[in-house]
Design a protein around this nucleic acid. Structure first.
Lengths: 198, 198
DNA sequence: CTCATTTTGTACCATCTTGCATAAAAATCA
DNA sequence: TGATTTTTATGCAAGATGGTACAAAATGAG
């Protein structure tokens, strides 16, 4: 008996996934070579293959882990108890900070998956799933505020506007808009979508 | 004197640019091979190179032409004289129709350039330029409505919301959302962003 | 008709890419 | 220590890719 036989892995799976996601996020799926990915993860290709499968499996695993980390990064802000406009401001601040972790700005999913979504149905589904999850989280939180009598006019419409704002933030960040301006963009959208609130 | 010496080109430059843009739009920049592009354009690679330069030059030329065609496709709706909400609905209907021309949905610029924008500054600038142009067109039209006393509460904020809605439409289309639902999405965003207007 | 000019099409090259085969290394078990 | 198991590391093979050289084809000029 024992935990594991054989030579122990020299890599940490979660750290490797973060490095893989970072390589794909900066270069895009098709342009990122396995050589670059292996170097970023501090592994060599055979180890990469043994751990995560082929390139597409690596990408899908990185997408899934990225989505989980994003959820962890933004959930606290979204589950806060303040005024809805403040909750949304905090949510976008968390999103923007998350999109600026690492060496370059942008969202792994929203900036790299669309290019591949047509040629590969699994990638397309991963993209659609993330969008659906974010929209549902936003709608759930906004409906909660509406139920609490916070005077939300059109909960579903507001959720869609905030979802659109999120895609805008992701694309704008990739186009070089600075964090401060992204935050202004988010605040302006929240204010314009919630007239009458602060 | 004369117009042109030598063997006449067998291709039409505008038709070739449309075919090149279509190949890049469906497959993405990095994943589209010159073989595919040549086949799509009905040319062979040496002719492609002579006409448009290397792969990146082809992509930049396709981006520019696509941007011009999009401008042509949506300007009539945006310059209409009806109520602002109707103008915006017509604008998004034109955008959605334009994004569904060809064999697959999506925006060449917003769906494929973000993946490359970090590794290539020229592509990044092309992406930023398109976003800036669209935002300016939206803001100009909304300010005009405000000047005409149409009761627009926050013109700049509304323009940003509509810009975000546009990126949302592009990404959603790529993720497989059907045209009818994209139109609903746009209408819901317009209604939520312009409360009080029918 | 001949020449100069421009485009086309075939073939090619150097490089990169993905994926794997295989041997060395590092650990556990007996 | 020796056998077994799992990971690492070097290197390789098959194929795809971007880009080009070069000859044939098609036009206008003289």
């Amino acid at each position: 008996m024992s935990s594991r036989r054989g030579r122990p892995p020299a890599y940490d799976r979660e750290a490797a996934l973060i490095a893989i996601a970072e390589a794909f996020r900066v270069r895009g799926y098709a342009a990122a070579s396995l050589e670059e990915i292996a170097r970023a993860a501090g592994m060599n290709r055979p180890s990469l293959f043994a751990a995560f499968g082929n390139k597409k499996a690596m990408y899908l695993a990185a997408l899934e882990d990225y989505r989980r980390r994003m959820r962890v990064a933004v959930s606290p802000a979204l589950e806060g108890d303040g005024a809805l406009s403040k909750v949304l401001v905090d949510f976008f601040d968390a999103v923007i900070a998350f999109y600026h972790e690492g060496t370059a700005p942008g969202c792994l999913v929203l900036c790299t998956a669309p290019a591949e979504a047509l040629a590969d149905k699994e990638i397309g589904r991963a993209l659609a799933d993330l969008i659906t999850e974010i929209e549902e989280q936003l709608r759930r939180r906004i409906l909660r505020a509406a139920d609490e009598g916070k005077g939300v006019r059109d909960p579903a419409g507001l959720a869609q506007l905030m979802l659109a704002t999120l895609t805008g933030v992701a694309i704008h960040a990739r186009a070089g808009v600075k964090q401060a301006n992204l935050k202004r963009f988010a605040r302006a959208n929240i204010a314009a979508a919630m007239p009458g609130t602060g």
